[in-house]
Design a protein around this nucleic acid. Structure first.
Lengths: 202, 202
DNA sequence: CATAATCATGAACGGCGTTCAAAAAAAACT
DNA sequence: AGTTTTTTTTGAACGCCGTTCATGATTATG
């Protein structure tokens, strides 16, 4: 006979372990960055055996995908709540989005970097669901661009949104990596502002 | 008694081995990308013992730095020879530079990616000489910007050069990584063109 | 040729992600 | 209650990696 309660409790325990591992992994990621994320450190921090990680995730890559998924959600929330109050021009919205993106990247450096540093091994591809979360982010800037250039087609606009995002992203990335001649951190926000200004000129 | 000839010959042999290893490593990098670069594969391709690599380089990182240094030199040459013939506006020069950069990134993807993917372990820093090579690249676009905005101060211009480079870089990067919603490859060059157009508007 | 100095070699080490036989725990049954 | 079956958890062990270093080979000097 099937004991439904027992089964539910087991699923709960499994979910709790999963959550403990994710929490531990996120803490490790924040402290040490993606390249410092080790299965043994994560599990000992989560208070479980090394093998437990592999009972809950296929491999480390899948755990990182879960972390990135959460970071993406946080980033989405941050961007959404960055909209300036009252009615505002497309340019103002773009400036607010870019500023919020820059702040997020600075304030959550390791988590943000992991979004872009992480690569799946040859032949493995990210789940469709994960790709969706990314597209949603980009689409958030389409309306502002549409307001600025009403005559441009929807397809071109979608492309221009990616280009705009990528341009801002590049400036933030090279600055935070402090590698390859990036903008000094103290000037980053003003330079991103200048960039968006140029990109949103009529 | 010192045998000068013998000493020279040994230095030569050492240099030849070094070059063989660099050549092998570059071939491996081109084929497999930075994450596929393995000491054992490199040395067996170079036809020497595993340990030989460590007689010539401190560690793999230093070998990668050497590879990146050469890629940077190639990139510099490519950009230098991209200048449009005849007298041309700052905007035209910028467009030519951006197009050449985009082509280089596409045609030498793994080597170009290695420039940005490679990180030294915590606490180790790139030699000054290597940082210089990077700065020279960026400075190549300053004159064009100066022609476009003669009234801007030298300091602001240097910053704007980095921002301009980083913006183009970001678009190319996200497109080639095919991760995070980047521009499809077929549209990359035209989007970079559109970006530079906006960035060089008076 | 003998001896000393130098160099090249690849087995061995420690750290990593991952697996899996075995132990522990839980569930089902009598 | 005990006994058996099923499920879950565990960490030693495996293969791969960068790196080291005792050992043997090679070359320079006496």
């Amino acid at each position: 006979m099937i004991m439904v309660n027992e089964m539910l409790r087991r699923e709960t325990k499994r979910a709790e372990l999963r959550e403990r591992i994710i929490t531990a992994a996120e803490a490790e990621l924040i402290e040490k960055g993606l390249s410092g994320l080790k299965a043994r450190d994560i599990t000992s921090r989560a208070g479980c055996a090394l093998g437990a990680l592999y009972n809950v995730f296929d491999d480390l890559d899948m755990l990182v995908l879960e972390l990135n998924s959460r970071t993406l959600a946080d980033l989405g929330t941050t961007l959404s709540s960055s909209a300036p109050v009252g009615s505002s021009s497309g340019r103002q919205v773009l400036q607010a989005l870019a500023a919020a993106y820059t702040d997020f990247a600075r304030d959550h450096q390791h988590r943000w970097m992991a979004l872009f540093e992480h690569r799946l091994p040859e032949g493995k591809y990210k789940p469709e669901e994960y790709r969706m979360e990314q597209i949603i982010l980009i689409d958030a800037i389409v309306p502002s661009l549409q307001e600025l250039w009403p005559e441009i087609s929807k397809e071109t606009l979608a492309m221009r949104a990616r280009t705009t995002f990528a341009a801002v992203h590049g400036v933030v990335l090279l600055s935070l990596q402090q590698q390859f001649v990036g903008i000094p951190l103290k000037d980053l926000k003003s330079e991103v502002g200048a960039l968006v200004e140029l990109l949103s000129r009529q």
